[in-house]
Design a protein around this nucleic acid. Sequence first.
DNA 1: CGCTAAATAT
DNA 2: CATATTTAGC
Length: 274
Amino acid sequence: MAFFIDNPSFPAGLKVIAIDHDITVLNTIEDMCNRFHYQVTKCNTASDALNLLERKDCFDVMLIDPHMPNMDAYDFVQHVTLQLNIPVIMMAVDFTTSSIMKSIQCGASTYLTKPLVEEEVKIMWQHVVRKGVTENKECEIVESLVVQECRKRGREDDKVSKETNAKKARLSWSPELHQRFLWAVNQLGLDKSRPKMILKIMDVPGLSVGHVASHLQKYRIHLKRSADETKPGKKKTKWSDSSQAEWIDQNRNDDFLAKWIDCGAGSYLHNLMA
DNA sequence: CGCTAAATAT
DNA sequence: CATATTTAGC
C-alpha cells in the first residue's frame, strides 16, 4: 500500500477487486476503472473471490455487493478488513438504514448504491489512504504501551532500573482492538477461546497474553450479565440495554468456521493452529 | 507454563 | 464505578 501511494503516477495502478453476481455490473466497473488506469479483477462467484484472496494476490481496495449467493458477505468483509487490512466498499441496490448499519459495523469503509457513478469509482482510492492513516495511529497507540508513562513503584530503585525504566502504560481497549478481539473469539468459538490462541489470531504487536486474558475475563463477565438479564424477570436493571450493547457480537455465529471451510477458505486459520 | 478467578490498582 | 493489572491457586 505504501508502495502504491509513493508511486509518482499515484492513483493510476490502483489494484481493485470487484465482486458481484451480476456480470453486467462488473463490466461497467471495469470500464470505469480502465478509464482511470486502475487494475481491476472481476469476480462473480464467492469461491472465485475466496480463491483470489487465498492465493495472497494483493489488492488495494475491494468492491463488493453484500448480497452474494453462497456467501455471508458481512462475515467475509469482516475478514477482509481485519486480516487483509484493505478498505471494502459496499455496493447495493437498497439503502435501508439497517443494511448500511450492518455494512459499516462489519468494517466496510463506505456504502454506495448501485449503479455506481464514475466519480465514486474515480475517488475510491481515498479509502486506501484513510486506512493507512488510521492504521498508523493504531500502531502508535499499541507501541506506546511499551514505552510510556510510569508507575510509582519502588523508592530508590530508580537507579537500579536506570534507563530501562520505560514503564508501560495501561492498555486501552480501543473499539478497533475490541473488534479484533471479537473477530478472534468468533474464529475459535467462544467455548474454545483461550488467551494464547486469541492473541495469535489477533496478531497485534505489543499486545500480551495478559492483556488478552484480562479482556477475556471482562468479556465473559459482560456476557454472563447480559444473559442473566434477559432470563429471569428482572426488575429495572439500571444498565439494561445501553452500556453493554457494544460487547455483544451481533455477528456471532456458531458455524461460522464451518461456513468458511465450505467456501474453501479458512486455511489461514489452520496454518495458525498448526 | 497456561488458564482463570480474585484481589488490587488506576 | 468501570476497567486494566497483578496475584494466587489450580
